[in-house]
Amino acid sequence: MKLLKDCKPSETVVVKKITGAGATKRRIMDMGITKGVEIHIRKVAPLGDPIELNIRGYELSLRKQDAQMIEVE
């Protein structure tokens, strides 16, 4: 099982599961990260965190800490 946090730039992955609960999980899902969606990892910020993703045709930035909640393959 792979976490989104560990993905490298320019990888494209599919979301399997989102763990966690509450506000952060809801927010992540509200932004369009749901089961089965394709995520393209664009880049990592200059200081190593957060990461930038391309999802559903737009750019989203996410802290690695939050990206830990997302299981991908």
Binding site: G22, A23, T24, R27, I28, M31, P50, E52, Y58, E59, L60, S61, L62, R63, D66
Partner: peptide
Amino acid sequence: EPAPFVMELPA
């Protein structure tokens, strides 16, 4: 209040 940093980078 947790403040998740899930931010859109608009075009």
